[in-house]
Design a protein around this nucleic acid. Structure first.
Lengths: 229, 229
DNA sequence: CGAATGATGCGTATGCGATACGCTAATTAG
DNA sequence: CTAATTAGCGTATCGCATACGCATCATTCG
């Protein structure tokens, strides 16, 4: 599986001129699958449904994609091949903040991708290009080169973990703390209870805790860089 | 689905004495499912396989669990009902560090749970108890009460996002950067290339970047708390 | 004590999703 | 024209979740 996935993402396509021309293409298949996942959820991306959308037979898809699992990997990497959230700023802090918010926006627009990102996978060309580009920008505006990767990863990890409640549907903030609406249950969690009382709201209310956490991460990186000198 | 999941996690079981006594129990089913997932992966947790392990018929399981999806939710919450990674320390920084490392260890021991954590879900009693307990400890050792939740969430989010490469198998660090072994491809990513050259290793090497990132997050929180006063 | 009650155990049937196999169709090289 | 080569896809199979209904078995009531 590991090697197969690797070849899939990084291997070269081959054609020698001869043979029936392809009506389908890997790109069209992946793009349509992403469209379905965005609109109806990853669960609704079945080979059958996908083939219907593309106006082809189910088994035709297998001429362009090894299987369902691999398709999902390709879908994920195709997202990363899109536009980069690279700020024009002249300092690394703004670049990283813009990056972190860009990651949040990407996963908010494509909620299904979060499960892929946190699953087992190898890095594909799209994602590699993404990460490489930020690191380049960061070093260009003064971040020490040895710190680029680790800084990006730290921000990425936070963003990845923190984006879930930003996504609508079950799992979003409101439903997540649904149990606090029951007074009897609320009493069992004295430290969580204040969340249900509007006046006593916790600092940096849930609404913008992504931004709060991101600033803390940036603070931490800044503190580290300063202390190194 | 939202309401059903909620009732499942927070609703009271009911029995009125009459009727055939149950040979199976929700607890046994969930525990066995967790054992399978730990040993063979979540993918191998099928109702059939699970029933065989329990020595019962497949459909018997449905008397105790509404369905497969709900079973997974219960499996996840059962993890959180286990022992808490609460440090005995007398300062919030040590408590939060211990907490973050505990989260990492939990997901390393139960890799399948990461996908559940980042998926859509509502908070169950186990997880609520977890979070409530840390917040209590944090305020006990001096962290301002309004900051407890947001601090825990920030650390949690980082830990959740950063734990993936700590888990073995595909997706772990080595295979993740597999493409860098090809010189031709490496040339396309100048900023990532140093990763493949042993001598020029990036600072805070990949091995311990979880710890590195965690310290940065703690730094950031500390800086914030100091600046508030 | 025997039958009604209410809950459980579970075999069978259904339907869906992924995909192996093999045949047919469409091009081009020689 | 013929062989080589590659794409499209119908059919069959297999695994999985689960709806339905019946048999089973303590408890409780008449």
């Amino acid at each position: 599986m590991g090697q197969a996935e690797y070849d899939l993402l990084w291997g070269e396509p081959h054609r020698n001129g001869r043979g029936r021309p392809a009506a389908l293409s890997r790109e069209r298949i992946v793009a349509e699958a992403v469209a379905i996942a965005d609109a109806e959820g990853l669960q609704k991306v079945s080979m059958k449904h996908l083939a219907e959308r593309l106006g082809s037979g189910v088994m035709s898809l297998y001429r362009h994609v090894p299987g369902k699992d691999e398709l999902v990997v390709l879908m994920y990497d195709s997202l990363m091949a899109g536009p980069l959230p690279l700020a024009e700023a002249d300092n690394w802090r703004d670049v990283l903040r813009h990056w972190g918010l860009g990651v949040r926006d990407l996963f908010t627009a494509h909620p299904w991708a979060l499960g892929v990102a946190t699953g087992e996978r190898v890095m594909g060309p799209g994602e590699a290009g993404w990460v490489d580009a930020v690191i380049g920008r960061l070093t260009a505006v003064g971040m020490p080169a040895e710190l680029g990767l680790i800084a990006v990863l730290t921000v990425d990890c936070f963003a990845l973990g923190a984006v879930r409640p930003e996504i609508g549907g079950a799992g979003s903030e409101t439903e997540y703390f649904q149990f606090l609406t029951d007074p009897a249950i609320r009493a069992r969690y004295p430290n969580l209870a204040p969340l249900a009382e509007p006046g006593t709201a916790a600092e940096g209310s849930m609404e913008d805790y992504f931004d709060f956490g991101l600033e803390r991460v940036l603070d931490g990186l800044e503190h580290y860089i300063e202390s190194r000198q």
